[in-house]
Design a protein around this nucleic acid. Structure first.
Lengths: 156, 156
DNA sequence: ATAACACCTAAACCTGACTTTATGTCAAGA
DNA sequence: TCTTGACATAAAGTCAGGTTTAGGTGTTAT
């Protein structure tokens, strides 16, 4: 059993944040000894899951819902599974979007690399948008392609 | 030259957001015809870059700085290059973090898949933390590994 | 000519996720 | 004893990134 200060150090989270999470109901079964929070293994794993769910784009109140399901027992396994599957899809989508972002950034790095060497953008403007070096063209194309969300919208 | 309404539709951005971006100085050279904004190719490319820089984690005021550099001309090529290179590194780091998140989510999906089938977590608790199926073990290990930031911190 | 739109501004408002402040309790060391 | 440090609470404050509201202009369709 650990104090809030120890947990704060291990997880690199301010004490105030841990108290805030507690107030928001993210540790529904945490114990206290004469008013003082006692973090156990359950709470440490909760923190790992909180980090993961936050990174996956979930809001605090939705994480509270998940923690509540954990308290309610086996009847909520299916809801929890569906939550994690939805999050997995969300993160996969997000990574695809980031890949597109990365292609734009790589294109811009190449572009300004040339601009710095040339001292102007004249040659670059002659190359755009479809006389680019092949290894750069694909960054440009991917970065300027309409995104998947727009495609889905049209498909409906 | 396009109106704010057209651009709003093409980019799936509320008109209010486009006006907000303008107020924040993200279109420093946008023209007006009797008070009405005229979006040209320059502004459309700006919007693509804004989307990219936002996704890469930049704040609005830093994007304004970039747009200002674009107005200032060739003397800022190097600054712009350095900005894009820093963003590329940031997005690469973010993708690594998301990969870890994804491994946690895959582990949890597997975990609750088993829990749903078994109706309990008994068998799962016997398998944890190191008697997991090999293809799952690697998700668990990666998801529970200390992150790169913590590693760097220790290395200093 | 009047209603419906699309545009405009300034300023107030909203949300989520913290953080800070003010105040207090309690145990250990000088 | 007294002060230092870690813990506690409630309530107010902060910040980014918009969104909404209130009030106005200008052009087009009926």
């Amino acid at each position: 059993m650990y104090t809030i200060g120890q947990v704060s150090e291990w997880f690199h989270l301010p004490v105030s944040t841990l108290r805030y999470y507690d107030k928001e109901g993210l540790f529904p079964t945490m114990e206290r000894q004469s008013g003082i929070r006692k973090f156990g293994e359950r709470e440490l794993e909760a923190l790992r899951v909180i980090e993961c769910l936050k990174q996956s784009g979930l809001e605090i109140k939705e994480i509270r819902q998940f923690m509540q399901w954990c308290v309610e027992g086996p009847s909520t396994y299916e809801a929890r599974l569906m939550l994690f599957e939805a999050r997995r899809r969300a993160v996969e989508d997000e990574m695809a979007r980031l890949q597109k972002t990365l292609d734009m950034l790589r294109f811009k790095c190449w572009y300004y690399g040339v601009a710095v060497r040339d001292g102007n953008e004249d040659r670059l403007h002659e190359l755009l948008p479809d006389r680019l070096p092949p290894e750069i063209q694909k960054f440009y194309d991917n970065a300027h392609a309409p995104d998947a969300a727009a495609d889905r919208e049209k498909a409906i």
